[in-house]
Nucleic acid binder design. Structure first.
Ligand SMILES: [Mn+2]
Ligand SMILES: [Mn+2]
Ligand SMILES: [Zn+2]
Ligand SMILES: [Zn+2]
Lengths: 144, 144
DNA sequence: TTTTTAAATGCAACTATATTGCATTTATAT
DNA sequence: ATATAAATGCAATATAGTTGCATTTAAAAA
């Protein structure tokens, strides 16, 4: 509902995706949240007008195009967040730390926190990193 | 089938768990593998003699007692590995890096690779860390 | 503007993982 | 040998995700 509508429409076109209701709705929801958004939450707020399968397909297409990235939280639930901008269909650049609050269950993209380097045993070839810190988020810590 | 049977029986007793078939079977399977073991794999090799629900309950009990630890791989699938020894019902100490091979899908405990420290934004309280590196494991890299 | 068409959606069916309640069985203590 | 709490089996249920196919629609072409 905010007026990023036009920006989102261009984003879809740029990626060769048609400008459809479900897609714009997903972009709108994701961009108006301060944390990553879980699939169940998306399914719930999108209501029954959009089919579950469509939602899954929208998310899959966005991920493939580098528009959003997926983060599995501590329970294996899929959470999605808009990519930082330099991602595309060929490569994602979202290797920042994610924080999963044990209280409110939110998943935060700590966009400024890079995953530190470490050594792996000989022979192993690392291609991707995924670091999830869990604990209490700033918002929940305040409520005391 | 190996003769850790006696050791496992003591382990169960020590944790106040009865010495039952399904439990010994799970311990036997997990201890004879070089990587973590997925729930689906366990379910498959345990066969139909043991009910699925029993397997889930065995895994849950072991995790709570600090006998095994759970690692979710890149697809959200639960994988289990025997703990290193210093874990108990009160606290787990398995904060090593895990490696998920994109080829053979195995999840390795890199027991000697600690998760390096990093800073989080003010207000966030980190309690647990989970770092999964993915790529090609040593065994798969050899087959070329 | 109308027509065309590939892309996107909806719907139904299905698979897989995981949990809960309750009846029955069994490992262990007495 | 018996008692009992713990463990298991079974049926039902919940939730996440996928696939095939018919229908609709956004966008390009005429
Ligand atoms: Mn992120
Ligand atoms: Mn491990
Ligand atoms: Zn929180
Ligand atoms: Zn491998």
């Amino acid at each position: 509902m905010t007026d990023n509508s036009n920006h989102f429409e261009k984003l879809l076109i740029k990626n060769g995706l048609k400008r459809t209701g479900p897609r714009l709705q997903v972009l709108d929801i994701l961009s108006n949240r301060d944390s990553a958004t879980s699939q169940p939450y998306l399914e719930q707020v999108m209501g029954t007008e959009v089919d579950r399968v469509t939602l899954y397909r929208v998310l899959k297409a966005f991920e493939e195009k580098g528009i959003i990235h997926k983060v599995l939280d501590n329970h294996g639930t899929a959470n999605y967040a808009i990519c930082s901008g330099n991602c595309n269909a060929n490569e994602h650049h979202d290797e920042h730390v994610h924080f999963n609050c044990n209280n409110c269950k939110k998943v935060y993209c700590l966009a400024n926190v890079q995953i530190p380097a470490f050594k792996v045993p000989a022979g192993f070839k690392v291609e991707n990193l995924n670091l999830i810190a869990s604990g209490i988020c700033a918002a929940c810590a305040d409520k005391d």
